[in-house]
């Protein structure tokens, strides 16, 4: 991979880092690499096509996310929102098109694990945490560190890492439940724990699929605050149905419909768009 001296390398990354190493079975992996974002774009999707047995889930989809941006994706059911996230995280391979993370990482050629280690975190639609482990242990597993088998066999938490976990526990307001098994948390608390796990990973790009589903109003409000504070340091892509929530957080909204971008702009702009009203808002 070519390395270019660049000014826009995100916090703490080595700008001279080489390409991602691939390890056949993941026994010894080198995690950290610099991310080249010199054009200010963290994610570029260009002409992505995905079809499942003839059904076109995404058609010529193009989308760009800027560094530090908070983007909301809205669209009716079946618009291709989750498929798009699957493409970004390597779960689904596009039939054609390109997906770049920064300027140099080709997401269509990387494995799911490589993509996660390169700095893309994802929260699933259904809150998924490690139910048999305690809240603290969930965060411990998620933290950014060497994730090879050998490293895990010898891993000990340093004081610094413990402090970081405490800090995140504080942020997601689960300090009281640190030793509770995650399976015993309420739905909203699980959502927060999963967000906390993403924070521990310190990814540059966070993909959040319906993060406030099943949350109380107070929790939703708190989440909005949290996301806004994250947006400066990270880039966020949020899929959400809750329009009130979108209105509070988003500076930029993309509307998907039938696997294509229908409209893009501020929420007011897209809400005024005739086609958007027709397919989605004016039900």
């Amino acid at each position: 991979m070519k390395t270019v001296p660049c000014s826009a390398v995100i916090d703490g990354f080595d700008p001279t880092g080489g390409g991602l190493t691939r390890d056949a079975i993941g026994l010894g992996r080198v995690a950290e690499k610099g991310l080249d974002v010199r054009h200010g774009t963290i994610l570029s999707l260009e002409d992505i096509n995905v079809s499942f047995d003839g059904f076109k889930a995404l058609t010529n989809l193009s989308l760009y996310i800027g560094v530090g941006e908070l983007r909301c994706i809205i669209g009716p059911n079946g618009a291709g929102k989750t498929t798009m996230m699957d493409v970004i995280t390597g779960k689904t391979r596009p039939t054609s098109g390109s997906a770049w993370f920064g300027e140099t990482l080709d997401l269509t050629r990387m494995s799911e694990v490589d993509i996660a280690q390169a700095g893309i975190g994802r929260k699933l639609q259904k809150p998924t945490v490690f139910e048999a482990l305690s809240v603290f242990e969930n965060l411990e597993l998620a933290q950014k560190t060497d994730k090879s088998v050998w490293a895990s066999l010898r891993a000990r938490l340093s004081g610094e890492q413990k402090d970081r976990i405490d800090e995140v526990l504080e942020t997601i307001r689960l300090g009281q439940s640190r030793h509770r098994p995650a399976g015993l948390l309420s739905h909203g608390q699980k959502q927060f724990l999963e967000i906390g796990m993403l924070l521990m990973q310190s990814p540059q790009l966070l993909l959040l699929d319906e993060p406030v589903a099943g949350m109380t109003d107070a929790e939703t409000e708190f989440t909005a605050e949290l996301f806004k504070s994250l947006a400066r340091k990270h880039s966020l892509m949020v899929v959400e149905h809750d329009m009130g929530f979108v209105e509070t957080i988003a500076d930029h909204v993309t509307v998907l419909h039938q696997g294509q971008v229908l409209a893009e702009g501020s929420l007011q702009q897209v809400q005024a768009d005739e086609r958007v009203i027709e397919v989605y808002l004016g039900r």
């Binding site: 079975i25 799911e112 694990v113 996660a116 280690q117 699933l124 945490v129």
Partner: peptide
């Protein structure tokens, strides 16, 4: 979830 956390 574990894969999205970066574990193989």
């Amino acid at each position: 979830r574990l894969m999205f956390c970066g574990y193989d």
